[in-house]
């Protein structure tokens, strides 16, 4: 009798845990569940941002570069891409002047100095760590019309340049004369 009661309590507890969500909906191909409207709207916004490639597809540029890269990150596996980019940040002089081809998520941020900067973000295999490289386009392009959507997958090729800022004496690096590929 005691065993039966315990089993019944365990089953009830399991059912209660499984029945927590009340509302479900599909937001641009991703199902979200929520018990509150405010949580739903937050999830919707975040899902839209994270799935911009699902929404917009991989970025198709109007023109593609025909330059051959010295280091092609688009042909490497996830752990290697992350490691190469990590080492480029850690030991940038080793890669100075090399033509790098890389693919990743587009990111753009407006700096405190009023200058908008653009970066290509790569993640490791577990997608828990991310690295990025800033790039400056060769042609004078207009944001946001001539650039990919935020976090949209794209590929770019450019020359890796290292410089020391006179303002703060830090070493920075970016892909110069970048072109879509």
């Amino acid at each position: 009798m005691k065993k039966t009661v315990l089993v019944l309590i365990a089953v009830l507890a399991l059912l209660m845990l499984a029945a927590c969500s009340e509302k479900s909906g599909t937001v641009k191909g991703v199902t979200t569940t929520s018990t509150a409207k405010s949580v739903d709207s937050t999830l919707e916004d975040r899902t839209r941002v994270m799935d911009s490639s699902v929404v917009y597809g991989i970025y198709e540029p109007p023109t593609r570069s025909t330059i051959e890269p010295e280091i092609d990150l688009t042909k490497m596996s996830g752990p290697l891409v992350y490691s190469v980019v990590y080492n480029m940040m850690k030991d940038p002089e080793r890669f100075n002047g090399k033509i790098i081809k890389m693919g990743g998520a587009f990111d753009s941020v407006l700096g405190d100095d009023g200058i908008r900067r653009y970066a290509c973000i790569v993640k490791d295999a577990a997608a828990c760590c991310a690295q990025g490289i800033e790039f400056k386009m060769k042609d004078d392009l207009k944001y946001p019309d001539d650039y990919p959507g935020q976090y949209q997958d794209f590929a770019v090729i450019g020359t890796f340049v290292v410089y020391t800022s006179e303002k703060d004496n830090y070493t920075y690096c970016y892909l110069d004369n970048a072109e879509y590929i």
Binding site: Y86, N87, D124, A125, A126, C128, C129, A130
Partner: peptide, 21 residues
């Protein structure tokens, strides 16, 4: 800025071995 990433990499060793000097 990425505490979870740092913790994850330390706990599971996702790419730490490939970033040795």
């Amino acid at each position: 800025a990425n505490i979870s990433g740092d913790v994850c990499a330390t706990l599971f060793g996702s790419t730490s071995i490939l970033t040795l000097g």
